[in-house]
Design a protein around this nucleic acid. Structure first.
Lengths: 134, 134
DNA sequence: AGACAAGTTGACGTGCGCGTAAACGTAACG
DNA sequence: CGTTACGTTTACGCGCACGTCAACTTGTCT
């Protein structure tokens, strides 16, 4: 079962696809991070909602708060037809984020290198154990 | 003022250097992430404490919980002189972390690329504003 | 129509990462 | 000697990101 671009997903389907709970989706909606359609009272999640949720979960993995993420999302789709001043602010906010993410990338590389070092060391000790055991 | 390797820092000095509050340092100590010396009742932070705190703050920036970080730290210095079984567990835990960080790195690259795209688009719109304004 | 799953809106509870205030110790300075 | 600066423990509080009921409605199947 593939999720086509114009599929409308129920809350349960969303939960299965993204491994979150209904509570989480309603919470994100209350915080205005997503805004699914309604068929009667029931929620229907569009492709746009799915794209946004993907970005939300990614942002979380990088340690951004939901409020941070909300502002980023607003940028992603409120950009067209905006006032110049607003757009400039948004642009600079994005530039800040970008810088932050690139610093984070550099740090992550460093951390990975250190961890690899440490593991090589531990690997040697384990090799020593194997030698001593014959 | 440089911090030499064998300097012992007061809690206030630590806070200034790492931009955290005393509460934060005591909290980390309560959670057994650091264990400063004591002169009387007062805390004295060694080079080792500083190294650990650096790792703690880095880990936080990557969205790890304090408990996650504590386990990583334990690995970093409890490794020597450990039982083989223990060390093996530790080693595999580290391998998992490494994989996690490398996935995170790939995702981060993707996110950076997307954000750059979005910014290029916004940059064009802003250029249009500047054209229309003469 | 009856039953049952799936969804809805409150409302309160929970774990984490600290903030903040109260009350106290202690060492140095004028 | 008092006070000022810096530190300590103990304890309650708070914001965030949800979990967990409870009570109710809304299709869906037979």
């Amino acid at each position: 079962m593939t999720t086509a671009k114009d599929d409308l997903l129920s809350i349960r389907q969303m939960c299965d696809v993204f491994d979150v709970t209904p509570r989480t989706l309603r919470f994100y909606e209350a915080k205005e991070l997503i805004a699914p359609l309604r068929r009667g009272t029931a929620r229907l999640y569009t492709y746009r909602d799915r794209a946004r949720l993907k970005l939300i979960l990614r942002g979380k993995r990088f340690g951004f708060s939901l409020e941070d993420i909300r502002q980023l999302l607003d940028m992603y789709d409120r950009a067209p037809g905006q006032q110049e001043a607003q757009l400039r602010r948004t642009y600079e906010l994005a530039a800040d984020r970008l810088a932050q993410m690139e610093r984070q990338r550099a740090e992550l590389d460093e951390a990975i290198a250190e961890l690899k070092d440490q593991m090589a060391w531990g690997g040697n000790v384990l090799a020593g154990f194997r030698n001593a055991a014959e």
